[in-house]
Design a protein around this nucleic acid. Structure first.
Length: 111
DNA sequence: GAGGTGACTGCGA
DNA sequence: CTCGCAGCCACCT
């Protein structure tokens, strides 16, 4: 169903996020046309670890640049560590220069 | 079938 | 500026 495609779309977009960049759930939701259902994006991420190709969910944060989903990783530090490893500065579970590192699919993909 | 929860966001006080 | 409430939709019990 479309619902299933929605998950696939989310995975695709997340996988398209360049290394060292981050985006928000709302941005993905808006790109998919389900901006009103930003929660669904987060829920899709919940199943991201079950997806065939690994999804860099650590590159997806809330609109504040806060690592709200870090707890869903193996360890809370895992998400922050992954971001730092990619060159993204993270402090107190928050992405620094978020607006600068922000990657908006609606603009970058600009279809 | 019905109720509760949640990796969100926006607006109002 | 910070805090609280409502809307949204899929998944779980």
């Amino acid at each position: 169903m479309d619902r299933k495609m929605f998950y696939d779309e989310v995975y695709q977009v997340v996988q398209l996020i360049p290394r060292g960049r981050v985006t928000s759930y709302g941005a993905i939701a808006a790109y998919l046309g389900t901006k009103s259902s930003s929660r669904m994006v987060g829920y899709a991420m919940n199943a991201a670890h079950t997806a065939s190709p690994p999804v860099p969910a650590h590159r997806v944060v809330n609109r504040n640049g806060l690592l709200t989903g870090k707890h869903h990783f193996g360890t809370s530090d895992e998400m922050m560590q992954l971001l730092i490893d990619e060159g993204v500065q993270v402090k107190d579970d928050q992405v620094l220069d978020f607006k600068t590192l922000f990657w908006d699919p609606a603009i970058e993909l600009a279809l």
